[in-house]
Design a protein around this nucleic acid. Sequence first.
DNA 1: TAGATTGTTAATCGATTAACAATC
DNA 2: TAGATTGTTAATCGATTAACAATC
Lengths: 207, 207
Amino acid sequence: MTKTMKISEAVVRRLPVYLRFLNELHKKNVQTVSSQDLGQKLDLNPAQIRKDLAYFGEFGKKGIGYDVDYLIEKIRQILKLDKVIPVALVGAGNLGRALCNYNAYLKDNMKIVAVFDALSNKVGESINNLKVKPMQELCPTIKELNVRIGIITVPAAEAQSVANQFVESGVEAILNFAPIIIKVPNEIRVHHADFTTELQSLAYYLD
Amino acid sequence: MTKTMKISEAVVRRLPVYLRFLNELHKKNVQTVSSQDLGQKLDLNPAQIRKDLAYFGEFGKKGIGYDVDYLIEKIRQILKLDKVIPVALVGAGNLGRALCNYNAYLKDNMKIVAVFDALSNKVGESINNLKVKPMQELCPTIKELNVRIGIITVPAAEAQSVANQFVESGVEAILNFAPIIIKVPNEIRVHHADFTTELQSLAYYLD
DNA sequence: TAGATTGTTAATCGATTAACAATC
DNA sequence: TAGATTGTTAATCGATTAACAATC
Protein backbone atom coordinates (compact mmCIF):
# COMPACT_ATOMS: atom_id res chain seq x y z
CA MET A 1 0.00 0.00 0.00
CA THR A 2 3.05 2.22 -0.27
CA LYS A 3 1.16 4.40 -2.75
CA THR A 4 1.08 8.16 -2.57
CA MET A 5 -1.74 8.96 -0.22
CA LYS A 6 -2.36 11.60 2.36
CA ILE A 7 -1.45 10.19 5.72
CA SER A 8 -3.38 11.82 8.53
CA GLU A 9 -1.60 13.93 11.06
CA ALA A 10 -2.80 11.68 13.85
CA VAL A 11 -0.98 8.75 12.27
CA VAL A 12 2.23 10.71 11.83
CA ARG A 13 2.16 11.82 15.44
CA ARG A 14 1.95 8.25 16.65
CA LEU A 15 4.96 7.04 14.69
CA PRO A 16 7.52 8.70 16.99
CA VAL A 17 5.75 7.16 19.95
CA TYR A 18 6.12 3.72 18.39
CA LEU A 19 9.74 4.45 17.59
CA ARG A 20 10.54 5.47 21.12
CA PHE A 21 9.10 2.32 22.58
CA LEU A 22 10.73 0.13 19.96
CA ASN A 23 14.07 1.70 20.86
CA GLU A 24 13.44 0.63 24.45
CA LEU A 25 12.65 -2.91 23.36
CA HIS A 26 15.82 -2.96 21.28
CA LYS A 27 17.87 -1.99 24.32
CA LYS A 28 16.28 -4.88 26.19
CA ASN A 29 17.17 -7.23 23.33
CA VAL A 30 13.56 -8.00 22.56
CA GLN A 31 13.43 -9.46 19.04
CA THR A 32 9.74 -9.38 18.19
CA VAL A 33 6.65 -7.46 19.25
CA SER A 34 2.95 -7.79 18.41
CA SER A 35 0.44 -5.00 17.90
CA GLN A 36 -1.20 -6.42 21.02
CA ASP A 37 1.92 -5.77 23.14
CA LEU A 38 2.45 -2.34 21.66
CA GLY A 39 -1.14 -1.38 22.19
CA GLN A 40 -1.06 -2.33 25.83
CA LYS A 41 2.12 -0.42 26.58
CA LEU A 42 1.14 2.67 24.66
CA ASP A 43 -2.56 2.74 25.53
CA LEU A 44 -3.62 2.35 21.94
CA ASN A 45 -5.88 -0.02 20.06
CA PRO A 46 -3.89 -2.82 18.38
CA ALA A 47 -5.96 -2.54 15.19
CA GLN A 48 -5.01 1.11 15.00
CA ILE A 49 -1.33 0.31 15.30
CA ARG A 50 -1.52 -2.31 12.55
CA LYS A 51 -3.41 0.08 10.33
CA ASP A 52 -0.97 2.92 10.97
CA LEU A 53 1.97 0.76 9.96
CA ALA A 54 0.16 -0.76 7.00
CA TYR A 55 -0.09 2.69 5.39
CA PHE A 56 3.63 2.46 4.75
CA GLY A 57 4.18 -1.19 3.93
CA GLU A 58 3.88 -4.75 5.17
CA PHE A 59 6.30 -4.78 8.04
CA GLY A 60 4.95 -7.67 10.10
CA LYS A 61 4.72 -11.43 9.82
CA LYS A 62 1.37 -13.11 10.28
CA GLY A 63 1.29 -15.28 13.37
CA ILE A 64 4.54 -13.74 14.63
CA GLY A 65 4.37 -9.96 14.92
CA TYR A 66 6.93 -7.30 14.04
CA ASP A 67 10.70 -7.66 14.11
CA VAL A 68 11.81 -4.88 16.44
CA ASP A 69 14.98 -3.87 14.65
CA TYR A 70 13.41 -4.00 11.23
CA LEU A 71 10.46 -1.88 12.35
CA ILE A 72 12.80 0.67 13.92
CA GLU A 73 14.63 0.92 10.63
CA LYS A 74 11.41 1.34 8.69
CA ILE A 75 9.91 3.98 10.97
CA ARG A 76 13.18 5.90 10.89
CA GLN A 77 12.98 5.90 7.11
CA ILE A 78 9.37 7.02 7.10
CA LEU A 79 10.12 9.89 9.48
CA LYS A 80 13.23 10.75 7.47
CA LEU A 81 15.34 10.12 10.53
CA ASP A 82 17.71 7.91 8.59
CA LYS A 83 20.02 10.83 8.01
CA VAL A 84 20.96 13.66 10.38
CA ILE A 85 18.54 16.61 10.27
CA PRO A 86 20.19 19.93 11.17
CA VAL A 87 18.06 22.09 13.47
CA ALA A 88 18.47 25.72 14.55
CA LEU A 89 17.07 27.34 17.66
CA VAL A 90 16.29 30.99 18.35
CA GLY A 91 15.97 32.20 21.92
CA ALA A 92 18.69 31.25 24.38
CA GLY A 93 16.51 31.73 27.44
CA ASN A 94 15.76 29.02 29.95
CA LEU A 95 13.63 26.98 27.64
CA GLY A 96 16.06 27.27 24.74
CA ARG A 97 18.92 26.14 26.94
CA ALA A 98 16.87 23.22 28.16
CA LEU A 99 16.19 22.05 24.62
CA CYS A 100 19.83 22.45 23.61
CA ASN A 101 21.00 20.41 26.52
CA TYR A 102 18.45 17.79 25.64
CA ASN A 103 20.39 17.43 22.43
CA ALA A 104 21.88 14.24 23.76
CA TYR A 105 18.38 12.77 23.94
CA LEU A 106 17.70 13.83 20.39
CA LYS A 107 19.80 10.94 19.23
CA ASP A 108 17.40 9.90 16.52
CA ASN A 109 19.23 12.08 14.08
CA MET A 110 17.93 15.47 15.09
CA LYS A 111 20.78 17.79 15.89
CA ILE A 112 20.72 21.40 17.02
CA VAL A 113 23.58 22.92 15.08
CA ALA A 114 23.07 26.64 15.70
CA VAL A 115 21.61 28.87 18.42
CA PHE A 116 20.69 32.53 18.07
CA ASP A 117 19.56 35.31 20.36
CA ALA A 118 18.67 38.96 19.88
CA LEU A 119 20.18 40.10 23.20
CA SER A 120 23.82 41.11 22.99
CA ASN A 121 24.55 39.80 26.47
CA LYS A 122 23.44 36.32 25.40
CA VAL A 123 25.50 36.35 22.23
CA GLY A 124 28.81 34.56 22.65
CA GLU A 125 27.63 32.43 25.56
CA SER A 126 28.29 28.76 25.20
CA ILE A 127 25.43 26.26 25.42
CA ASN A 128 26.28 22.63 25.07
CA ASN A 129 29.37 23.42 22.99
CA LEU A 130 27.50 25.83 20.73
CA LYS A 131 28.25 29.56 20.76
CA VAL A 132 25.12 31.72 20.70
CA LYS A 133 25.12 33.86 17.57
CA PRO A 134 23.53 37.26 16.88
CA MET A 135 20.40 37.45 14.74
CA GLN A 136 22.19 38.96 11.76
CA GLU A 137 23.97 35.68 11.26
CA LEU A 138 20.76 33.66 11.18
CA CYS A 139 20.15 33.60 7.46
CA PRO A 140 23.72 32.92 6.29
CA THR A 141 24.31 30.31 8.98
CA ILE A 142 21.10 28.44 8.21
CA LYS A 143 21.98 28.33 4.54
CA GLU A 144 25.53 27.25 5.23
CA LEU A 145 24.60 24.46 7.61
CA ASN A 146 21.57 23.35 5.59
CA VAL A 147 19.27 23.76 8.55
CA ARG A 148 15.87 22.28 7.76
CA ILE A 149 13.92 22.75 11.00
CA GLY A 150 13.73 25.84 13.18
CA ILE A 151 12.78 25.99 16.86
CA ILE A 152 11.35 29.18 18.33
CA THR A 153 11.79 29.81 22.05
CA VAL A 154 11.49 33.58 22.16
CA PRO A 155 8.74 35.64 23.80
CA ALA A 156 5.39 35.81 21.97
CA ALA A 157 6.03 39.34 20.74
CA GLU A 158 9.04 38.27 18.68
CA ALA A 159 7.91 34.86 17.51
CA GLN A 160 6.34 35.97 14.23
CA SER A 161 9.42 37.93 13.23
CA VAL A 162 11.67 34.96 13.96
CA ALA A 163 9.35 32.72 11.95
CA ASN A 164 9.59 35.11 9.00
CA GLN A 165 13.36 35.01 9.14
CA PHE A 166 13.31 31.22 9.28
CA VAL A 167 11.09 31.09 6.23
CA GLU A 168 13.23 33.53 4.28
CA SER A 169 16.30 31.49 5.11
CA GLY A 170 14.75 28.37 3.63
CA VAL A 171 13.76 26.43 6.74
CA GLU A 172 11.10 23.84 5.86
CA ALA A 173 9.42 23.28 9.22
CA ILE A 174 9.08 25.13 12.52
CA LEU A 175 8.48 24.05 16.09
CA ASN A 176 7.06 27.03 17.94
CA PHE A 177 7.08 27.22 21.74
CA ALA A 178 5.88 30.81 21.92
CA PRO A 179 2.26 31.26 23.05
CA ILE A 180 1.00 32.71 19.80
CA ILE A 181 -0.23 31.33 16.47
CA ILE A 182 2.40 32.16 13.89
CA LYS A 183 1.53 32.58 10.22
CA VAL A 184 3.71 31.07 7.52
CA PRO A 185 3.29 30.11 3.86
CA ASN A 186 1.36 26.91 3.23
CA GLU A 187 4.36 24.84 2.25
CA ILE A 188 6.00 25.39 5.64
CA ARG A 189 4.91 23.04 8.39
CA VAL A 190 4.43 24.50 11.87
CA HIS A 191 3.82 22.63 15.10
CA HIS A 192 2.85 24.50 18.20
CA ALA A 193 4.24 23.22 21.49
CA ASP A 194 2.77 25.56 24.01
CA PHE A 195 2.69 24.23 27.52
CA THR A 196 0.48 26.93 29.02
CA THR A 197 -2.25 25.75 26.68
CA GLU A 198 -1.56 22.20 27.77
CA LEU A 199 -1.69 23.13 31.44
CA GLN A 200 -4.87 25.15 31.10
CA SER A 201 -6.72 22.40 29.30
CA LEU A 202 -5.69 20.07 32.14
CA ALA A 203 -7.41 22.37 34.60
CA TYR A 204 -10.74 21.65 32.90
CA TYR A 205 -10.60 18.08 34.14
CA LEU A 206 -10.22 18.99 37.81
CA ASP A 207 -13.32 18.20 39.84
CA MET B 1 -27.20 23.65 26.36
CA THR B 2 -25.31 23.79 29.64
CA LYS B 3 -26.37 20.19 30.30
CA THR B 4 -24.00 17.53 31.52
CA MET B 5 -22.48 16.10 28.39
CA LYS B 6 -19.10 14.75 27.49
CA ILE B 7 -17.15 17.54 25.87
CA SER B 8 -14.54 16.22 23.49
CA GLU B 9 -10.89 16.68 24.25
CA ALA B 10 -10.41 18.58 21.00
CA VAL B 11 -12.88 21.20 22.19
CA VAL B 12 -11.23 21.54 25.59
CA ARG B 13 -7.83 22.01 23.99
CA ARG B 14 -9.09 24.88 21.89
CA LEU B 15 -10.53 26.83 24.81
CA PRO B 16 -7.12 27.99 26.13
CA VAL B 17 -6.25 29.11 22.62
CA TYR B 18 -9.38 31.24 22.50
CA LEU B 19 -8.63 32.57 25.95
CA ARG B 20 -5.12 33.60 25.04
CA PHE B 21 -6.25 35.53 22.00
CA LEU B 22 -9.14 37.13 23.87
CA ASN B 23 -6.67 38.33 26.49
CA GLU B 24 -4.72 40.01 23.70
CA LEU B 25 -7.87 41.69 22.41
CA HIS B 26 -8.69 42.85 25.92
CA LYS B 27 -5.26 44.47 26.19
CA LYS B 28 -5.96 46.31 22.94
CA ASN B 29 -9.32 47.49 24.31
CA VAL B 30 -11.28 45.59 21.70
CA GLN B 31 -14.88 45.30 22.96
CA THR B 32 -16.40 42.74 20.65
CA VAL B 33 -15.25 39.90 18.41
CA SER B 34 -17.04 37.64 15.92
CA SER B 35 -16.42 33.96 15.29
CA GLN B 36 -15.31 35.13 11.85
CA ASP B 37 -12.50 37.28 13.32
CA LEU B 38 -11.46 34.60 15.76
CA GLY B 39 -11.39 31.96 13.07
CA GLN B 40 -9.17 34.01 10.85
CA LYS B 41 -6.65 34.81 13.55
CA LEU B 42 -6.54 31.30 14.95
CA ASP B 43 -6.76 29.37 11.68
CA LEU B 44 -10.02 27.72 12.68
CA ASN B 45 -13.43 27.39 11.12
CA PRO B 46 -15.87 29.99 12.52
CA ALA B 47 -18.63 27.40 12.77
CA GLN B 48 -16.38 25.29 14.90
CA ILE B 49 -15.69 28.14 17.27
CA ARG B 50 -19.39 28.92 17.64
CA LYS B 51 -20.12 25.28 18.26
CA ASP B 52 -17.33 24.93 20.81
CA LEU B 53 -18.63 27.87 22.80
CA ALA B 54 -22.26 26.82 22.46
CA TYR B 55 -21.50 23.62 24.39
CA PHE B 56 -21.17 25.76 27.48
CA GLY B 57 -23.84 28.40 27.02
CA GLU B 58 -25.08 31.24 24.84
CA PHE B 59 -22.29 33.73 25.13
CA GLY B 60 -22.78 35.74 21.95
CA LYS B 61 -25.31 38.21 20.56
CA LYS B 62 -26.81 37.58 17.16
CA GLY B 63 -25.76 40.19 14.64
CA ILE B 64 -23.06 41.48 17.02
CA GLY B 65 -20.63 38.78 18.09
CA TYR B 66 -19.06 38.08 21.48
CA ASP B 67 -18.24 40.59 24.19
CA VAL B 68 -14.52 40.11 24.76
CA ASP B 69 -14.47 40.62 28.52
CA TYR B 70 -17.57 38.53 29.11
CA LEU B 71 -16.20 35.68 27.03
CA ILE B 72 -12.88 35.79 28.89
CA GLU B 73 -14.78 35.53 32.16
CA LYS B 74 -16.83 32.60 30.90
CA ILE B 75 -13.91 30.63 29.47
CA ARG B 76 -11.99 31.17 32.70
CA GLN B 77 -14.92 29.70 34.58
CA ILE B 78 -15.18 26.73 32.24
CA LEU B 79 -11.48 25.97 32.56
CA LYS B 80 -11.68 26.48 36.32
CA LEU B 81 -9.18 29.28 36.05
CA ASP B 82 -11.37 31.57 38.10
CA LYS B 83 -9.47 30.63 41.24
CA VAL B 84 -5.75 30.00 41.71
CA ILE B 85 -4.71 26.40 40.99
CA PRO B 86 -1.64 25.31 42.96
CA VAL B 87 0.84 23.31 40.89
CA ALA B 88 3.92 21.32 41.93
CA LEU B 89 6.90 20.44 39.76
CA VAL B 90 9.40 17.61 40.14
CA GLY B 91 12.75 17.82 38.40
CA ALA B 92 14.76 21.01 38.82
CA GLY B 93 16.83 20.47 35.67
CA ASN B 94 16.96 22.87 32.77
CA LEU B 95 13.42 22.26 31.67
CA GLY B 96 12.02 22.43 35.18
CA ARG B 97 13.76 25.74 35.79
CA ALA B 98 12.44 27.07 32.49
CA LEU B 99 8.87 26.23 33.46
CA CYS B 100 9.25 27.74 36.93
CA ASN B 101 10.58 30.96 35.52
CA TYR B 102 7.68 31.01 33.11
CA ASN B 103 5.52 31.29 36.19
CA ALA B 104 5.03 34.95 35.46
CA TYR B 105 3.40 34.00 32.17
CA LEU B 106 1.15 31.57 33.94
CA LYS B 107 -0.92 34.47 35.09
CA ASP B 108 -4.22 32.82 34.32
CA ASN B 109 -4.30 31.45 37.83
CA MET B 110 -1.85 28.58 37.51
CA LYS B 111 0.86 28.89 40.12
CA ILE B 112 3.84 26.65 40.75
CA VAL B 113 3.99 26.56 44.52
CA ALA B 114 6.53 23.80 45.14
CA VAL B 115 9.55 22.30 43.37
CA PHE B 116 11.20 18.98 44.18
CA ASP B 117 14.31 17.13 43.08
CA ALA B 118 15.88 13.80 43.99
CA LEU B 119 19.46 15.07 43.79
CA SER B 120 20.83 16.42 47.04
CA ASN B 121 22.92 19.04 45.25
CA LYS B 122 19.76 20.50 43.72
CA VAL B 123 17.89 20.55 47.01
CA GLY B 124 18.01 23.94 48.67
CA GLU B 125 18.67 25.85 45.44
CA SER B 126 16.37 28.77 44.81
CA ILE B 127 14.34 28.95 41.62
CA ASN B 128 12.15 31.96 41.12
CA ASN B 129 11.84 32.46 44.91
CA LEU B 130 11.04 28.81 45.54
CA LYS B 131 13.46 26.57 47.44
CA VAL B 132 13.88 23.14 45.86
CA LYS B 133 12.75 20.47 48.33
CA PRO B 134 13.80 16.84 48.68
CA MET B 135 11.48 14.07 47.50
CA GLN B 136 10.57 12.96 51.01
CA GLU B 137 8.70 16.21 51.46
CA LEU B 138 6.63 15.75 48.33
CA CYS B 139 3.60 14.10 49.84
CA PRO B 140 3.22 16.27 52.94
CA THR B 141 3.88 19.47 51.01
CA ILE B 142 1.37 18.65 48.32
CA LYS B 143 -1.28 17.95 50.90
CA GLU B 144 -0.48 21.05 52.87
CA LEU B 145 -0.54 23.37 49.87
CA ASN B 146 -3.53 21.66 48.24
CA VAL B 147 -1.61 21.06 45.05
CA ARG B 148 -3.96 19.82 42.32
CA ILE B 149 -1.72 19.51 39.27
CA GLY B 150 1.73 17.94 39.08
CA ILE B 151 4.38 18.61 36.43
CA ILE B 152 7.01 15.98 35.70
CA THR B 153 10.34 17.13 34.27
CA VAL B 154 12.58 14.25 35.34
CA PRO B 155 14.34 11.72 33.10
CA ALA B 156 12.19 8.98 31.60
CA ALA B 157 13.49 6.35 34.01
CA GLU B 158 12.06 8.17 37.03
CA ALA B 159 8.87 9.54 35.56
CA GLN B 160 6.61 6.64 36.51
CA SER B 161 7.80 6.68 40.10
CA VAL B 162 7.17 10.41 40.37
CA ALA B 163 3.72 9.94 38.86
CA ASN B 164 2.95 7.30 41.48
CA GLN B 165 3.97 9.66 44.25
CA PHE B 166 1.83 12.41 42.79
CA VAL B 167 -1.16 10.09 42.67
CA GLU B 168 -0.67 8.91 46.23
CA SER B 169 -0.44 12.50 47.40
CA GLY B 170 -3.82 13.31 45.90
CA VAL B 171 -2.85 15.22 42.78
CA GLU B 172 -5.73 15.21 40.26
CA ALA B 173 -3.91 15.81 37.00
CA ILE B 174 -0.39 15.46 35.64
CA LEU B 175 1.54 17.16 32.87
CA ASN B 176 4.36 14.84 31.86
CA PHE B 177 7.37 16.09 29.91
CA ALA B 178 9.32 12.84 30.18
CA PRO B 179 9.51 10.80 26.99
CA ILE B 180 7.57 7.83 28.29
CA ILE B 181 3.89 6.92 28.62
CA ILE B 182 3.09 6.93 32.31
CA LYS B 183 0.30 4.79 33.78
CA VAL B 184 -2.10 6.21 36.33
CA PRO B 185 -5.56 5.33 37.65
CA ASN B 186 -8.43 6.27 35.35
CA GLU B 187 -9.62 9.18 37.41
CA ILE B 188 -6.29 10.98 37.05
CA ARG B 189 -5.86 13.01 33.90
CA VAL B 190 -2.47 12.93 32.19
CA HIS B 191 -1.27 15.09 29.33
CA HIS B 192 1.97 14.28 27.59
CA ALA B 193 4.08 17.22 26.43
CA ASP B 194 7.01 15.56 24.79
CA PHE B 195 8.88 17.73 22.38
CA THR B 196 11.06 15.02 20.87
CA THR B 197 7.87 13.41 19.60
CA GLU B 198 6.78 16.77 18.27
CA LEU B 199 10.09 17.34 16.54
CA GLN B 200 10.21 13.87 15.01
CA SER B 201 6.73 14.11 13.57
CA LEU B 202 7.78 17.42 11.99
CA ALA B 203 10.58 15.63 10.18
CA TYR B 204 8.00 13.57 8.31
CA TYR B 205 6.87 16.67 6.46
CA LEU B 206 10.29 17.56 5.10
CA ASP B 207 10.56 17.03 1.37
C1' DT C 1 -35.53 48.02 7.47
C1' DA C 2 -31.05 45.87 5.84
C1' DG C 3 -26.88 43.73 7.28
C1' DA C 4 -24.49 40.94 10.35
C1' DT C 5 -23.81 37.16 13.13
C1' DT C 6 -25.28 33.84 16.40
C1' DG C 7 -26.89 29.02 17.88
C1' DT C 8 -28.12 24.74 16.04
C1' DT C 9 -29.45 21.16 12.87
C1' DA C 10 -28.18 18.40 9.09
C1' DA C 11 -24.58 16.82 5.92
C1' DT C 12 -20.00 15.59 5.33
C1' DC C 13 -15.89 14.01 6.27
C1' DG C 14 -12.41 11.39 8.60
C1' DA C 15 -10.63 8.49 12.18
C1' DT C 16 -11.09 4.49 15.15
C1' DT C 17 -12.46 -0.10 16.04
C1' DA C 18 -14.23 -4.73 15.02
C1' DA C 19 -14.02 -8.67 12.45
C1' DC C 20 -11.93 -12.10 9.73
C1' DA C 21 -9.55 -14.41 5.85
C1' DA C 22 -4.80 -15.27 4.97
C1' DT C 23 -0.76 -17.30 6.60
C1' DC C 24 3.34 -17.85 9.51
C1' DT D 1 -2.00 -29.31 12.61
C1' DA D 2 -3.37 -25.67 16.16
C1' DG D 3 -2.48 -21.14 17.78
C1' DA D 4 -1.21 -16.59 16.93
C1' DT D 5 -1.16 -12.47 14.57
C1' DT D 6 -1.04 -9.81 10.51
C1' DG D 7 -3.18 -6.77 6.75
C1' DT D 8 -7.43 -5.12 5.26
C1' DT D 9 -12.35 -4.50 4.66
C1' DA D 10 -16.54 -3.12 6.66
C1' DA D 11 -18.96 -0.98 10.58
C1' DT D 12 -18.97 2.42 13.91
C1' DC D 13 -18.14 6.34 15.97
C1' DG D 14 -17.01 11.15 16.41
C1' DA D 15 -15.56 15.59 14.79
C1' DT D 16 -15.81 19.26 11.40
C1' DT D 17 -18.24 22.06 8.23
C1' DA D 18 -22.21 23.97 5.75
C1' DA D 19 -26.45 25.99 5.89
C1' DC D 20 -30.02 28.70 7.69
C1' DA D 21 -33.74 30.40 10.74
C1' DA D 22 -33.71 33.51 14.53
C1' DT D 23 -32.64 37.99 15.98
C1' DC D 24 -29.73 41.89 17.37
